[in-house]
Simulated assay, not measured.
Amino acid sequence: MSDESQIEIPQSFIALFVEPGRTKPNASREHIAARYELCEDLANLLTQTAGTMQFSLGITERDVLERCQQGLLLEDSVVTPTEAQWVICRLAELMQWPMPAALTVTGPQA
């Protein structure tokens, strides 16, 4: 059994690849798994940055999440805008912070 077949991809991430009105993703499982691994790794890497940012700048959790999202949305980002939103949602989850409604993941991958 390959490593790829053992990766459990959350439905919230698969939903990024399902167009409105459709039920199946618009990308292969291999592509979705690769993108998921990248986004999950990115969210985990951002936990230390987010904690440091909140402590050193004295800003709210929401401000930290917004700043991280702005960084992920830069022109040369390795993630799409919807993947960036997912990463921020996952970061909030990992930090055990509430997710502001304005930052929730919506819609299919752009």
Rank of each mutant, 00 (worst) to 15 (best):
I7Y: 08
P100A: 09
L57G: 10
T23V: 15
I7P: 03
A50P: 02
P25H: 06
A15Y: 02
E4Y: 10
S2N: 14
L45N: 11
F17H: 14
M53C: 11
P20C: 09
A84H: 12
C89A: 11
L73W: 11
Q11H: 09
G21P: 13
H31I: 09
N26R: 13
F55V: 09
D63C: 06
E19P: 02
L46T: 03
V18C: 13
L46W: 00
I9M: 04
G107N: 10
L16D: 03
E30D: 14
V78L: 15
F17S: 03
E61N: 14
H31N: 09
R90P: 01
M53S: 11
Q70F: 04
Q11F: 02
Q96E: 15
L72R: 00
W86T: 03
V105K: 00
Q96S: 14
M99W: 03
D63S: 14
Q11N: 08
A43F: 11
T49K: 15
Y36G: 04
N44R: 07
R35T: 02
Y36H: 13
K24R: 10
R22N: 13
F17R: 08
Q85M: 09
V64E: 13
R35E: 06
A102M: 07
V79K: 05
T104H: 06
Q6P: 02
L45Y: 01
R67G: 07
T49M: 00
M95V: 03
M53G: 08
C89F: 00
M1I: 11
A33D: 09
L73H: 08
E93A: 09
S12H: 05
W97P: 00
G58A: 09
Q85E: 12
R29I: 00
T47P: 12
A110D: 15
D63M: 13
A50V: 05
E93S: 10
G107L: 14
S28C: 04
P100K: 04
M95Y: 02
V64H: 14
T52D: 12
M1F: 14
L74N: 08
E19R: 14
S28T: 13
G107I: 15
A34P: 07
M53H: 08
I7T: 07
S5N: 10
R35I: 04
E40R: 06
A27R: 06
L42I: 05
E83D: 09
W86G: 01
L94I: 01
D3M: 08
L74D: 10
R62Y: 10
T82Y: 00
Q48V: 02
V64P: 09
R67T: 03
C68W: 01
L73R: 14
P81Q: 15
P100T: 09
E40H: 14
T104M: 12
A27F: 14
E83A: 04
L72V: 11
T106D: 02
E40G: 01
A102P: 01
C68A: 15
P20A: 11
P10Y: 08
Q69F: 00
E93T: 08
P10S: 03
E30S: 10
L72M: 07
Q70C: 00
M53D: 09
A50N: 08
L42K: 11
L42W: 14
E61F: 07
